[in-house]
Amino acid sequence: MAKKLKGYTTFDIVLIVVFSLLALIMIYPIWYVIVCSFNEGTDYIAGGIYLLPRKWTGYNYLVVFSNAKLWNAYLVTISRTILGTVIALSFTTIVSYAMSRKELPFKKVIYLINIFTMFFSGGLIPFFLIIKMIGMYDTYALYLIPCMYSVYHMIILSSYFSALPEELREAAVLDGAGEWRILFTVVIPLSTPVLATVGMWIAIGHWNSFFDSMVYTQKESLMTLQHYLNRVINSTNIDAGGITLPESVVESMTAEVITFASIVVSILPVMFIFPFVSKYFEKGIMVGSVKG
Protein backbone atom coordinates (compact mmCIF):
# COMPACT_ATOMS: atom_id res chain seq x y z
CA MET A 1 0.00 0.00 0.00
CA ALA A 2 1.42 3.36 -1.06
CA LYS A 3 2.42 5.55 1.86
CA LYS A 4 0.90 9.02 1.78
CA LEU A 5 1.29 12.20 3.78
CA LYS A 6 2.14 11.71 7.48
CA GLY A 7 2.26 7.98 6.87
CA TYR A 8 -1.52 7.69 6.37
CA THR A 9 -2.42 4.79 4.09
CA THR A 10 -5.54 4.32 1.97
CA PHE A 11 -6.85 2.11 4.78
CA ASP A 12 -6.59 5.01 7.23
CA ILE A 13 -8.42 7.34 4.88
CA VAL A 14 -11.20 4.80 4.31
CA LEU A 15 -11.55 4.34 8.06
CA ILE A 16 -11.89 8.07 8.64
CA VAL A 17 -14.47 8.45 5.87
CA VAL A 18 -16.56 5.47 6.99
CA PHE A 19 -16.53 6.44 10.66
CA SER A 20 -17.36 10.07 9.84
CA LEU A 21 -20.38 8.88 7.86
CA LEU A 22 -21.47 6.59 10.69
CA ALA A 23 -21.16 9.40 13.24
CA LEU A 24 -23.16 11.64 10.95
CA ILE A 25 -25.98 9.09 10.76
CA MET A 26 -25.95 8.75 14.56
CA ILE A 27 -25.98 12.44 15.37
CA TYR A 28 -28.08 13.77 12.49
CA PRO A 29 -31.49 12.74 13.95
CA ILE A 30 -30.74 14.97 16.96
CA TRP A 31 -29.76 17.88 14.73
CA TYR A 32 -32.86 17.31 12.62
CA VAL A 33 -35.24 17.43 15.56
CA ILE A 34 -33.66 20.63 16.90
CA VAL A 35 -33.81 22.33 13.50
CA CYS A 36 -37.42 21.35 12.83
CA SER A 37 -38.53 22.39 16.30
CA PHE A 38 -37.67 25.99 15.34
CA ASN A 39 -39.52 25.79 12.05
CA GLU A 40 -43.08 26.83 11.25
CA GLY A 41 -45.45 23.85 11.16
CA THR A 42 -47.10 24.22 7.77
CA ASP A 43 -43.73 24.94 6.20
CA TYR A 44 -42.31 21.75 7.77
CA ILE A 45 -45.12 19.69 6.19
CA ALA A 46 -43.88 20.83 2.78
CA GLY A 47 -40.74 18.80 3.56
CA GLY A 48 -37.14 19.29 2.52
CA ILE A 49 -35.69 20.82 5.69
CA TYR A 50 -32.20 19.45 6.17
CA LEU A 51 -29.68 21.67 7.89
CA LEU A 52 -31.36 24.87 9.08
CA PRO A 53 -34.93 26.03 9.73
CA ARG A 54 -36.57 27.62 6.67
CA LYS A 55 -39.17 29.72 8.48
CA TRP A 56 -37.93 30.42 11.98
CA THR A 57 -40.36 30.55 14.88
CA GLY A 58 -40.17 30.37 18.65
CA TYR A 59 -43.89 29.87 19.17
CA ASN A 60 -43.54 26.07 19.18
CA TYR A 61 -41.56 26.36 22.39
CA LEU A 62 -43.99 28.88 23.82
CA VAL A 63 -46.79 26.34 23.38
CA VAL A 64 -44.69 23.53 24.85
CA PHE A 65 -43.54 25.57 27.84
CA SER A 66 -47.05 26.73 28.67
CA ASN A 67 -48.32 23.15 28.76
CA ALA A 68 -49.02 22.20 32.37
CA LYS A 69 -49.12 18.47 31.56
CA LEU A 70 -45.60 18.52 30.23
CA TRP A 71 -44.35 20.26 33.36
CA ASN A 72 -46.14 17.75 35.52
CA ALA A 73 -44.61 14.87 33.56
CA TYR A 74 -41.23 16.57 33.84
CA LEU A 75 -41.64 16.85 37.60
CA VAL A 76 -42.64 13.17 37.92
CA THR A 77 -39.62 12.09 35.89
CA ILE A 78 -37.12 14.36 37.64
CA SER A 79 -38.33 13.39 41.10
CA ARG A 80 -38.40 9.68 40.33
CA THR A 81 -34.95 9.87 38.77
CA ILE A 82 -33.45 11.52 41.84
CA LEU A 83 -35.37 9.61 44.53
CA GLY A 84 -35.35 6.34 42.62
CA THR A 85 -31.61 6.46 42.02
CA VAL A 86 -30.81 7.30 45.64
CA ILE A 87 -33.08 4.54 46.96
CA ALA A 88 -31.95 1.90 44.47
CA LEU A 89 -28.27 2.69 44.84
CA SER A 90 -28.40 2.67 48.66
CA PHE A 91 -30.42 -0.54 48.81
CA THR A 92 -28.31 -2.36 46.23
CA THR A 93 -25.09 -1.18 47.89
CA ILE A 94 -26.15 -2.54 51.29
CA VAL A 95 -27.14 -5.93 49.86
CA SER A 96 -24.05 -6.06 47.65
CA TYR A 97 -21.78 -5.38 50.61
CA ALA A 98 -23.25 -8.29 52.53
CA MET A 99 -22.95 -10.49 49.45
CA SER A 100 -19.30 -9.55 49.06
CA ARG A 101 -18.39 -10.81 52.54
CA LYS A 102 -17.30 -14.39 53.00
CA GLU A 103 -18.51 -14.29 56.63
CA LEU A 104 -22.10 -13.97 55.41
CA PRO A 105 -24.09 -16.92 56.77
CA PHE A 106 -25.82 -19.11 54.14
CA LYS A 107 -23.95 -17.20 51.45
CA LYS A 108 -24.30 -19.94 48.82
CA VAL A 109 -28.05 -20.31 49.29
CA ILE A 110 -28.62 -16.56 49.21
CA TYR A 111 -26.47 -16.24 46.10
CA LEU A 112 -28.47 -18.98 44.41
CA ILE A 113 -31.75 -17.28 45.28
CA ASN A 114 -30.39 -14.17 43.58
CA ILE A 115 -28.94 -15.84 40.49
CA PHE A 116 -32.00 -17.95 39.75
CA THR A 117 -34.06 -14.82 39.05
CA MET A 118 -31.68 -13.95 36.21
CA PHE A 119 -32.48 -17.20 34.42
CA PHE A 120 -36.18 -17.64 35.01
CA SER A 121 -39.03 -15.19 35.49
CA GLY A 122 -42.75 -15.38 36.06
CA GLY A 123 -43.39 -13.19 33.05
CA LEU A 124 -45.15 -9.88 32.57
CA ILE A 125 -48.68 -10.81 33.59
CA PRO A 126 -47.95 -12.45 36.98
CA PHE A 127 -45.72 -9.46 37.80
CA PHE A 128 -48.49 -7.10 36.76
CA LEU A 129 -50.95 -8.97 39.00
CA ILE A 130 -48.57 -8.85 41.98
CA ILE A 131 -48.25 -5.09 41.53
CA LYS A 132 -52.03 -4.86 41.64
CA MET A 133 -52.35 -7.24 44.60
CA ILE A 134 -49.93 -5.35 46.83
CA GLY A 135 -51.72 -2.11 46.04
CA MET A 136 -48.92 -0.51 44.09
CA TYR A 137 -50.91 -0.05 40.89
CA ASP A 138 -51.42 3.63 40.12
CA THR A 139 -49.25 4.89 42.97
CA TYR A 140 -46.04 6.90 42.91
CA ALA A 141 -44.28 4.17 44.94
CA LEU A 142 -44.44 2.06 41.79
CA TYR A 143 -41.65 4.18 40.33
CA LEU A 144 -39.37 3.71 43.33
CA ILE A 145 -39.91 0.26 44.88
CA PRO A 146 -40.03 -2.40 42.13
CA CYS A 147 -36.80 -1.11 40.57
CA MET A 148 -34.83 -0.55 43.76
CA TYR A 149 -32.86 -3.77 43.47
CA SER A 150 -31.21 -5.50 40.53
CA VAL A 151 -29.25 -8.74 40.74
CA TYR A 152 -27.10 -7.62 37.83
CA HIS A 153 -26.02 -4.46 39.66
CA MET A 154 -25.52 -6.45 42.85
CA ILE A 155 -23.04 -8.76 41.07
CA ILE A 156 -21.09 -5.80 39.69
CA LEU A 157 -20.97 -3.97 43.03
CA SER A 158 -20.15 -6.98 45.18
CA SER A 159 -17.37 -8.15 42.87
CA TYR A 160 -15.87 -4.67 43.18
CA PHE A 161 -16.28 -4.62 46.98
CA SER A 162 -14.71 -8.04 47.41
CA ALA A 163 -11.65 -6.89 45.49
CA LEU A 164 -10.94 -4.11 48.02
CA PRO A 165 -7.91 -4.70 50.26
CA GLU A 166 -8.84 -6.81 53.28
CA GLU A 167 -6.38 -5.04 55.63
CA LEU A 168 -8.46 -1.85 55.73
CA ARG A 169 -11.42 -3.82 56.95
CA GLU A 170 -9.39 -5.71 59.52
CA ALA A 171 -8.12 -2.41 60.90
CA ALA A 172 -11.67 -1.14 61.25
CA VAL A 173 -12.74 -4.38 62.94
CA LEU A 174 -9.91 -4.04 65.48
CA ASP A 175 -11.19 -0.52 66.18
CA GLY A 176 -14.48 -2.14 67.07
CA ALA A 177 -16.40 -1.01 64.01
CA GLY A 178 -19.58 -2.84 63.10
CA GLU A 179 -20.55 -3.81 59.55
CA TRP A 180 -22.60 -0.65 58.99
CA ARG A 181 -19.69 1.57 60.00
CA ILE A 182 -17.28 -0.40 57.83
CA LEU A 183 -19.64 -0.07 54.89
CA PHE A 184 -20.07 3.68 55.27
CA THR A 185 -16.56 4.70 56.34
CA VAL A 186 -14.36 2.20 54.52
CA VAL A 187 -16.12 0.53 51.59
CA ILE A 188 -18.25 3.33 50.12
CA PRO A 189 -15.49 5.99 50.08
CA LEU A 190 -13.23 3.53 48.25
CA SER A 191 -15.85 2.59 45.68
CA THR A 192 -16.97 5.94 44.28
CA PRO A 193 -16.12 5.08 40.62
CA VAL A 194 -18.25 1.95 40.52
CA LEU A 195 -21.02 3.55 42.58
CA ALA A 196 -21.10 6.55 40.22
CA THR A 197 -21.31 4.23 37.23
CA VAL A 198 -24.06 2.00 38.54
CA GLY A 199 -25.89 5.07 39.85
CA MET A 200 -25.78 6.53 36.37
CA TRP A 201 -27.13 3.37 34.77
CA ILE A 202 -30.00 3.47 37.24
CA ALA A 203 -30.60 7.18 36.61
CA ILE A 204 -30.67 6.75 32.82
CA GLY A 205 -33.11 3.89 33.27
CA HIS A 206 -35.39 6.10 35.35
CA TRP A 207 -35.17 9.04 32.97
CA ASN A 208 -36.03 6.93 29.94
CA SER A 209 -38.58 4.64 31.55
CA PHE A 210 -41.87 4.46 29.81
CA PHE A 211 -43.11 0.91 30.21
CA ASP A 212 -43.95 1.13 33.94
CA SER A 213 -45.86 4.35 33.50
CA MET A 214 -47.82 2.91 30.59
CA VAL A 215 -48.58 -0.51 32.06
CA TYR A 216 -48.97 0.09 35.80
CA THR A 217 -50.61 3.52 35.94
CA GLN A 218 -53.71 5.18 34.58
CA LYS A 219 -53.70 8.52 36.41
CA GLU A 220 -52.61 11.40 34.21
CA SER A 221 -50.85 12.99 37.18
CA LEU A 222 -48.47 9.99 37.34
CA MET A 223 -47.50 10.11 33.68
CA THR A 224 -43.75 10.16 33.14
CA LEU A 225 -42.07 12.39 30.60
CA GLN A 226 -41.50 9.56 28.10
CA HIS A 227 -45.08 8.36 28.45
CA TYR A 228 -46.33 11.88 27.89
CA LEU A 229 -44.05 12.31 24.87
CA ASN A 230 -45.40 9.10 23.39
CA ARG A 231 -48.88 10.54 23.69
CA VAL A 232 -47.79 13.80 22.07
CA ILE A 233 -46.06 11.93 19.24
CA ASN A 234 -49.17 9.89 18.50
CA SER A 235 -51.60 12.78 18.75
CA THR A 236 -52.68 15.01 15.91
CA ASN A 237 -54.05 17.75 18.16
CA ILE A 238 -52.10 20.60 19.68
CA ASP A 239 -52.50 21.12 23.40
CA ALA A 240 -51.94 24.87 23.57
CA GLY A 241 -52.37 24.87 27.34
CA GLY A 242 -54.68 27.87 27.54
CA ILE A 243 -52.42 30.56 26.08
CA THR A 244 -53.70 32.78 23.29
CA LEU A 245 -51.54 33.10 20.20
CA PRO A 246 -51.83 35.37 17.15
CA GLU A 247 -54.13 33.81 14.57
CA SER A 248 -51.45 33.58 11.90
CA VAL A 249 -49.27 31.60 14.31
CA VAL A 250 -52.09 29.20 15.19
CA GLU A 251 -52.78 28.62 11.51
CA SER A 252 -49.21 27.77 10.67
CA MET A 253 -48.69 25.49 13.66
CA THR A 254 -48.88 21.70 13.29
CA ALA A 255 -48.68 18.74 15.68
CA GLU A 256 -45.33 17.65 14.22
CA VAL A 257 -43.36 20.72 15.17
CA ILE A 258 -44.92 20.72 18.63
CA THR A 259 -43.75 17.12 18.97
CA PHE A 260 -40.24 18.16 17.96
CA ALA A 261 -40.14 21.00 20.46
CA SER A 262 -41.39 18.65 23.20
CA ILE A 263 -38.73 16.09 22.30
CA VAL A 264 -36.00 18.74 22.43
CA VAL A 265 -37.22 19.94 25.83
CA SER A 266 -37.18 16.35 27.10
CA ILE A 267 -33.62 15.63 25.95
CA LEU A 268 -32.07 18.92 27.08
CA PRO A 269 -30.98 17.55 30.47
CA VAL A 270 -29.49 14.47 28.78
CA MET A 271 -27.57 16.64 26.32
CA PHE A 272 -26.31 18.80 29.15
CA ILE A 273 -25.16 15.92 31.35
CA PHE A 274 -23.86 13.66 28.58
CA PRO A 275 -20.38 15.20 28.14
CA PHE A 276 -19.72 14.84 31.86
CA VAL A 277 -20.89 11.28 32.25
CA SER A 278 -19.91 9.57 29.01
CA LYS A 279 -16.46 8.91 30.46
CA TYR A 280 -17.99 7.12 33.43
CA PHE A 281 -19.92 4.92 31.04
CA GLU A 282 -16.70 3.56 29.63
CA LYS A 283 -15.13 3.08 33.02
CA GLY A 284 -18.19 1.31 34.32
CA ILE A 285 -18.32 -1.12 31.48
CA MET A 286 -14.72 -2.01 32.25
CA VAL A 287 -15.68 -2.57 35.85
CA GLY A 288 -18.49 -4.81 34.66
CA SER A 289 -16.22 -6.73 32.34
CA VAL A 290 -13.95 -7.79 35.19
CA LYS A 291 -16.44 -10.42 36.27
CA GLY A 292 -16.84 -11.78 32.73
Partner: peptide, 12 residues
Protein backbone atom coordinates in the same frame (compact mmCIF):
# COMPACT_ATOMS: atom_id res chain seq x y z
CA UNK B 1 -24.55 -9.15 57.27
CA UNK B 2 -27.38 -11.67 57.23
CA UNK B 3 -29.86 -8.86 57.80
CA UNK B 4 -28.36 -6.82 54.95
CA UNK B 5 -28.44 -9.72 52.51
CA UNK B 6 -31.94 -10.74 53.51
CA UNK B 7 -33.21 -7.30 52.47
CA UNK B 8 -32.40 -8.38 48.94
CA UNK B 9 -34.01 -11.78 49.45
CA UNK B 10 -37.23 -10.18 50.71
CA UNK B 11 -37.29 -7.96 47.64
CA UNK B 12 -36.82 -10.94 45.35
Amino acid sequence: LLFMASLGVVFL
